[in-house]
Design a protein around this nucleic acid. Structure first.
Lengths: 123, 123
DNA sequence: CAGTATCCTAATCGATACTG
DNA sequence: CAGTATCGATTAGGATACTG
C-alpha cells in the first residue's frame, strides 16, 4: 500500500495509521464511539459540523477498515455502530494519547500559528 | 479554530492534533526528523514519493505550526530543519505510539480491507 | 430513520520549469 | 542547493434532494 515509504519500519508504518485518520471526521467518530454503541442520527446530532453525506462516507470507511462494526438489530430493525476490538485499540490507545497531547499543547500550537500569521502579514 | 466540535474536550481536541497530521507527509517528515537535524535535500532523497513542491509546503506548514524549526547556518549558508520542543513531544509521544500501533495491527487492517474489497466485488 | 445520488467549490498533490 | 510559480488531475467536503 505504502510499501515505498521508508527506512525504519515505524517511519513508514505511521502512514498506515495516519491514512486511517486522514479524513477529517474519522478520528472524531472514533472518539465519539469510545463511550459505546451509537446510532447514526445520534452521531449526526452530537458532532456539530458533519454533513449527512460525509458521515455516511466516514462510517463506511471505518467499517471497511475494520475499525467499526455495523450492527443491525433484527428485532426492531435499528442500525447502530460500535468500535471493533481493533478500533478500540486505536481509539483508546494512540488516538486518546493524541487527544491528551492536544489538550496539553493546544495553546502552544495556536500561539505559533498566530505568530506566524503576524510575521507573514508584516512582510 | 475547531471550537464548534463537541462535548467532551478530548473529542474535539483530537481534531487539533489530527489537523496537524492531516496532510500526507506531515507525520512522515516529523518521524524522519526524530533522528536529528536534516537538510531539505536529504529529506527529499530519503522519503520516497514526496515531490519537491509538496515537501516545501509540508516544511513550511510544520514551521508555521511550531513543530519544526528552520535553521540557517550563517557561516556556510546552509539550511536545515529540526524538531522543535513542541514537535518533539508530538513525534516521540503520540506519533510514535501511532507508529507502534500500526506495526502491531497492520495485518488486521489490511485483512479487513481485503475482506471488504472481496465482499464488495462479490455483490 | 438509514443511506444514496448529484452538483459544486476548494484544496491536495504531482510534474515541470524557473529564480536567488 | 533552497524555494517559488504554474498547470492539470484528483479528491474531499458541503448542500440538497431523493429512495427503501
Amino acid at each position: 500500500m505504502n510499501d515505498d515509504c521508508q527506512p525504519f519500519v515505524t517511519d513508514c508504518a505511521v502512514r498506515l495509521a495516519t491514512d486511517l485518520l486522514a479524513h477529517t471526521w474519522d478520528p472524531v467518530v472514533l472518539m465519539a464511539l469510545r463511550t459505546g454503541r451509537r446510532r447514526r442520527i445520534d452521531l449526526l446530532a452530537s458532532l456539530t459540523g458533519v454533513s449527512d453525506k460525509v458521515l455516511s462516507e466516514t462510517l463506511r470507511r471505518l467499517v471497511s477498515n475494520g475499525l467499526v462494526t455495523r450492527i443491525t438489530t433484527t428485532t426492531d430493525r435499528t442500525v447502530a455502530y460500535e468500535l471493533s476490538e481493533l478500533g478500540g485499540s486505536l481509539a483508546n490507545g494512540p488516538l486518546a494519547a493524541l487527544g491528551h497531547w492536544a489538550v496539553e499543547h493546544a495553546d502552544q500550537v495556536l500561539l505559533a500559528q498566530q505568530q506566524d500569521g503576524a510575521s507573514a502579514s508584516a512582510r
